[in-house]
C-alpha cells in the first residue's frame, strides 16, 4: 500500500499527514485530523454534507483526494469563528438536526465572499448542491439573504 507524507494548509495551520493515495480529503480531515465538522452523507458528491472551502471555493471533500490538496488553502467549518453566516444560521433557525449545517455554511460563506451580489437565481445554483432533509430550506434562504443584505448595506 503506497503512502504519502503531505503538508496541508488547513484553517491557517500547517498540518502533516500520512495518507494513502486513495484517501479522500474527507476521510483525512475526519480520521487523521479529527476535524469531524465535515460530514459523510453519500461519499458520492450528491449531498454536500462534506462541503469545505478550497482556495475559498466550495468543494465536496468526498470527491477530492487528499494528495490533490497540497499547496491549497483549505478551510473547514472548524476554521469559522463567529462569522456573520454562522450568526445568521443561529438567528433564523436554519437547521434542525445540524448534520447538513457545516456543508451549507461553508457553501453559503463562499457564496457571499465570491458573489456578493448574488441574486435568487445564483443562490439557487449554489445552494442546490447541498441537501437538507430537516428544514423546508426557507430558513436557510432567510439566513443567507440576511447576510447578503447586510453586506450590501456595508458597501
Amino acid at each position: 500500500m503506497k503512502v504519502h507524507q503531505l503538508e496541508l494548509r488547513i484553517n491557517n495551520e500547517k498540518r502533516m499527514v500520512v495518507v494513502r493515495s486513495a484517501d479522500t480529503l474527507l476521510a483525512v480531515l475526519r480520521r487523521n485530523l479529527g476535524l469531524t465538522g465535515a460530514k459523510p452523507g453519500c461519499l458520492n458528491g450528491d449531498c454536500g454534507a462534506c462541503t469545505i472551502n478550497v482556495d475559498r471555493l466550495p468543494m465536496k471533500s468526498c470527491l477530492m483526494l487528499a494528495i490533490e490538496c497540497e499547496g491549497k488553502e483549505i478551510t473547514t467549518i472548524e476554521g469559522m469563528h463567529n462569522t456573520p453566516m454562522q450568526q445568521a444560521f443561529v438567528e433564523h433557525f436554519a437547521f434542525q438536526c445540524g448534520y447538513c449545517t457545516s456543508g451549507f455554511i461553508m457553501n453559503a460563506h463562499s457564496l457571499i465572499h465570491n458573489r456578493p451580489n448574488a441574486d435568487n437565481q445564483m443562490m439557487k445554483e449554489w445552494l442546490d448542491s447541498n441537501i437538507c432533509r430537516c428544514t423546508g430550506y426557507e430558513e436557510i434562504e432567510r439566513a443567507v439573504k440576511d447576510v447578503l443584505r447586510k453586506n450590501s448595506q456595508i458597501q
Binding site: 467549518i77 454562522q86 444560521f89 443561529v90 438567528e91
Partner: peptide, 20 residues
C-alpha cells in the same frame, strides 16, 4: 434559540460516527 445551536454551526456537534 436552540441550546445546541452554536455546536451545530461550528462543527463541534458530535454524532455517532464522529467518535473514533
Amino acid at each position: 434559540v436552540r441550546k445546541e445551536a452554536w455546536q451545530k454551526v461550528t462543527g463541534t456537534a458530535k454524532y455517532t460516527d464522529d467518535y473514533a
